[in-house]
Simulated assay, not measured.
Amino acid sequence: MISSPFGKDLGSMNADLENYTYYQMNNIDSNASTLRAGITEIAENYGFKDIEININSQFGENQMPMQVTVDGVSMVPTLQDGENVIIQKTKNPKVGDIIVVKDPEETLLIKRLGNISGDRIFLSSDNNDTVTAIVNGSYVEMIALEKWTNASNVVGVARIFNV
């Protein structure tokens, strides 16, 4: 246990901050504001008051990264099955960006943003080939998923590939 001259257990506080930050970076619903609020609460629980928190990442000030793993071949040749990608959590993608969205049917999807119409976005795949897969012991032909969804489902934009 590490103690400061002021009687605060800084080792425990640092561990709590590290665990909380890791969780928030991987939480699809978190952002810089929720991260800042949680860090403030942890610091206050350890007796620190009036603290200033600056959040900086490789994407800039108040920008949060998140790592995702590609599952499937719908984005081949751009992204490979099993490839790790770092996204920038943002709600402001542009047409042509590769984005991650939360989807009620599929959990998380990584797709290309094909179109924006009001509060709806069109998700498209880079791989439009039919793929044969074994599902529950039977061969099934699968085609790439393309669909419209709510823009509010955007988690972020892919920025760093093949991590």
Rank of each mutant, 00 (worst) to 15 (best):
V68T: 02
I160S: 09
W148V: 02
K89Y: 09
V68Q: 10
G114W: 02
M66S: 07
G11V: 03
V155A: 10
R36P: 05
S117F: 09
I99T: 03
N150L: 15
K111T: 02
Y23T: 13
T34N: 05
I143Y: 11
I53S: 01
S4F: 04
I53Q: 02
N31L: 00
Q63N: 14
V85N: 09
I110L: 13
I87F: 05
K91P: 02
Q80F: 10
R36E: 07
S138I: 14
K94E: 12
K91I: 00
T69M: 10
T21W: 05
I134S: 06
V73F: 11
V70W: 04
V154D: 05
S12Y: 04
P93Y: 03
E83V: 01
E61S: 07
V131S: 02
E61N: 10
I2L: 13
D81E: 13
N127I: 14
L108G: 01
A43T: 12
R36D: 04
P77G: 00
L113S: 04
K91H: 06
L79Y: 07
E52T: 15
K8I: 15
K147H: 11
E41C: 06
D71Q: 11
W148I: 03
D9G: 08
L10V: 15
D97W: 07
G38Q: 02
T78I: 10
N150W: 11
E18K: 09
N162P: 01
K94M: 11
A158T: 07
A43Q: 04
V140I: 13
A15M: 15
V155Q: 10
K8Y: 09
K147L: 09
S30W: 09
I99W: 05
R36Y: 04
N45H: 12
S4A: 08
N54Q: 13
I98C: 03
D71K: 13
L108M: 05
N128D: 07
M66E: 03
V68G: 10
R120V: 05
V73N: 10
A32P: 08
V157F: 09
I2C: 12
A133T: 05
M25W: 04
E18F: 11
E18V: 11
N19G: 13
M142E: 12
D16A: 14
Q24A: 12
T34V: 08
T132K: 15
E41H: 08
R159E: 09
I42M: 02
N62R: 06
V76P: 00
Q80K: 12
E146F: 06
G72Y: 01
E83S: 06
I98H: 03
A151R: 13
N19F: 14
E41S: 13
K8W: 07
R36W: 05
N27P: 13
S57T: 03
I87C: 05
